[in-house]
């Protein structure tokens, strides 16, 4: 097919600052200098370098999207963000009752240590769960933005992850307050809350966030193709909780059963969290390696799975 030119058949020189006369007789300077080229993706992937630069330059959008989503959710709730802390606190209390009743009761000190373990475990697990489940819905619920604007779609699950992190932060002081008060009344409780091991918390949290974000990318993509993925996810995360060292202690597993701690992507993070916040020990070498390995696997696999299917989002939403 012949190349169509709409205004004129005259060939133009590829030089900047050119001018032409329009239908209204005005001489216009064609000054735009932003050249964008859209070509087919190679191996289903956009140019990775350009994609990452665009991702980085739009990070403010993710932050603001998280802030506005937060604002919208709690705008008309009287208790508002208090539920963020109340919900896991009440759940921890329910699970604590369940676990101590099933065990046939225990002494006060041991009971309080169990409560502290469940509390920090649940707070940490819910952080990962929120990153995954909110991220899974971020693409299908961002329909209009996706249909109207070109931007790296990974910014949407990133926004969910940022929001989940903000919601996680206040739960840490709550845990500290509960443990400090508990230790005051039950000094024999075997919890070493303040130790040098706390320096490992940023590493553990960072690796956990990457792992959960990578998984969010996988589920967000699946949710575009199969809209019941997010429903299924609510059951999956419940089973995931029971399979994680939250309601039980890692020491309860022996021999090959300990493999469960590392096969579970959240296992190393949850074990390390208990190690730091309960026993005051730094994470074991296996936990440190496990954290990094799962973060890398989740980011590589999740990133590829998501970005290689980003093009489809605009036609499947």
């Amino acid at each position: 097919m012949a190349h169509l030119r709409l205004m004129s058949e005259k060939k133009s020189e590829p030089a900047s600052g050119a001018s032409h006369v329009n239908d209204l007789g005005h001489v216009k300077e064609a000054t735009p200098s932003l050249i964008q080229v859209f070509e087919p993706h190679k191996a289903s992937l956009p140019p990775v370098g350009a994609y990452m630069r665009e991702f980085w330059s739009r990070k403010r959008f993710s932050l603001e999207l998280a802030r506005f989503a937060d604002k919208a959710e709690y705008l008309e709730s009287n208790l508002g963000k208090v539920w963020l802390v109340l919900n896991p606190l009440l759940l921890a209390f329910v699970y604590f009752l369940l676990v101590t009743v099933l065990r046939g009761g225990s002494d006060k000190a041991h009971g309080f240590t169990t409560l502290a373990h469940i509390l920090i475990g649940l707070f940490t697990f819910y952080f990962a769960q929120n990153v995954i489940s909110d991220g899974a819905q971020s693409i299908t619920s961002g329909g209009r933005l996706i249909l109207n604007q070109a931007f790296p779609r990974t910014l949407l699950p990133l926004s969910s992850a940022i929001r989940s992190f903000w919601q996680y932060i206040p739960t840490i002081p709550v845990y500290i307050v509960v443990v400090v008060i508990g230790k005051f009344f039950i000094p024999k409780a075997d919890i070493h809350i303040f130790s040098w091991a706390l320096l490992w918390i940023p590493y553990v949290t960072f690796c956990l966030a990457l792992t959960a974000f990578g998984m969010a990318l996988i589920f967000a993509t699946m949710n575009v193709y199969f809209r019941d993925t997010s429903k299924l996810l609510s059951y999956t995360t419940r089973i995931w909780l029971y399979a994680s060292p939250v309601l039980w202690l890692p020491e309860m597993l022996h021999g090959w059963h300990r493999a469960i701690l590392y096969v579970n992507p959240l296992g190393p993070a949850l074990s390390a969290t208990a190690e730091i916040w309960i026993r005051g020990h730094q994470p074991t070498l296996a936990q440190i390696i496990g954290l990094a390995v799962w973060a890398v696997i989740a980011m590589i696999f999740g990133g590829y799975f998501f970005i290689s299917r980003e093009r489809d989002f605009a036609v499947r939403i």
Partner: peptide
Amino acid sequence: ILPPTEGRITVN
């Protein structure tokens, strides 16, 4: 928003 399957689009 939707990259080409073949060809090229250049936008200035």
